[in-house]
């Protein structure tokens, strides 16, 4: 698939946590373009700044300096309300710890997002995409970790997001269940043309991406495109 024009444009992103002696420079002057429908993997060790970058892209955090725009949305300097609207309308999140609501069933967790989206698919369709239709009536505590993460993917995609941001989606999973989750993410990217960014420190996943960005010490130190992508089923670690 041929990538299109950039939808994400970041210039000179810098993020500093704390002040004085406890000052931590999480991102240093990062420039980044991400194109519509692109599958990107951000690789790097702990503390390299990849989560900070993803959080800024997802409207969860604001840079100390620099600019980040998504299409015509200026993310830097946006109010909390504007960022909430941005997340609500355009972004789907998948996190390492699933972040499901324990008192809602699988179907309800997905519907929770569907009810606030403008053009969602049905929760049943989303669950079908991740292969969990048969678990719709269960509570998260009744599911395995892999199943819970696939519910999180379904919840992220039910709104037909423009961007899918995944932070260590397989971090808490074993290989077999991790593959199922990755397959679900790849399927969404392919079938819905959803721009996808996956953070991982697991370089095996890198083979699935159109493009791999390596971060270290708050900078993008290496950027490479995959001439041939591997399927989720072939990922091993």
């Amino acid at each position: 698939m041929q990538p299109l024009a950039p939808v994400f444009v970041a210039r000179g992103l810098t993020k500093v946590y704390g002040a004085g002696d406890s000052r931590v420079l999480a991102l240093k002057d990062v420039d980044l373009d991400i194109r519509q429908g692109e599958f990107i993997v951000l690789l790097g060790p702990s503390g390299s700044g990849k989560s900070t970058l993803l959080n800024i892209l997802g409207g969860l955090d604001a840079p100390t300096s620099g600019t980040a725009t998504w299409r015509d949305h200026e993310l830097t300097g946006a109010s909390d309300e504007q960022l909430t609207t941005y997340r609500r309308e355009h972004v789907g999140f998948v996190f390492q710890f699933y972040n499901l609501i324990p008192s809602l069933t699988v179907e309800e967790n997905v519907r929770l997002v569907a009810q606030i989206a403008s053009n969602p698919m049905t929760p049943a369709e989303a669950l079908e995409l991740v292969g969990l239709s048969h678990r719709a009536g269960h509570f998260p505590s009744q599911l395995s970790g892999g199943e819970q993460q696939r519910v999180a993917v379904a919840r992220a995609i039910v709104k037909r997001p423009d961007i899918l941001l995944c932070d260590e989606p397989t971090g808490a999973l074993d290989v077999d269940t991790g593959r199922l989750v990755l397959a679900a993410i790849a399927k969404v990217n392919a079938e819905l043309n959803t721009t996808t960014a996956v953070i991982t420190h697991n370089s095996a996943i890198a083979g699935m991406a159109h493009r791999v960005l390596r971060l270290s010490g708050g900078r993008i130190v290496k950027e490479e495109a995959n001439p041939r992508r591997i399927r989720a089923e072939d990922v091993t670690w």
Partner: peptide, 16 residues
């Protein structure tokens, strides 16, 4: 707090 923050992240407003 964890659950409520999760709700905020997936796009629910403060009021919700």
């Amino acid at each position: 707090a964890w659950e409520l923050a999760s709700l905020r992240i997936i796009g629910l407003t403060r009021r919700e």
